[in-house]
Amino acid sequence: METKSILLVGVGGQGTILASKILTTGLMEAGYDVKMSEIHGMSQRGGSVSSQVRYGDQVFSPVIEKGAADIVVAFEQMEALRALEYLKADGALVVNTQKIDSMSVIVGDEQYPDDVLDEIGKHVQEKAIDATSIAQSLGNSKAANVVLLGTIIKAMGLEHIDWDKILEENIKARFVDLNKKALRAGMEAVS
């Protein structure tokens, strides 16, 4: 099969790294060749973060080129816009409706535009979901990352992988049930 490319973007602290860890572990156990690339270093200090995941029969480059992502999943609105150039023309975009002000907005140098989703909508048929509220309704807003992981699984047709098992092996026991529910809620949100 042709190599598939998944780009997860967000803001440091939103849990993109855990989501991509679960994703890549599942893909490996399903028999795919997998590569993932992350840039950390400044990630805990409110900067933009991204995880690039590629899988297929044989993956060469661990990084995704601009215009080459089959799906972009953005954990935050502005990061969705920033990542738009990575998406293939016919690629899928899932965006969490959460907005996080950057320091330039807080100190008044820039304004966070109100119409980010409108701008995205002009170019792609995005799927906007409120993953934070969905996770909150399940008991903990921190599970928003796994809700968003659920959207990837559905959109990329990866339901055949035993995600419950992967969650059990990679998440603390007391959070497993919450995250199983979050994963399903994410899958339903893009059905």
Partner: peptide, 15 residues
């Protein structure tokens, strides 16, 4: 690549 209105981007430097 998809071309979009870049004036709508805000910076997100670490803090």
């Amino acid at each position: 690549t998809i071309d979009f209105d870049r004036s709508k981007l805000i910076g997100r430097a670490p803090a």
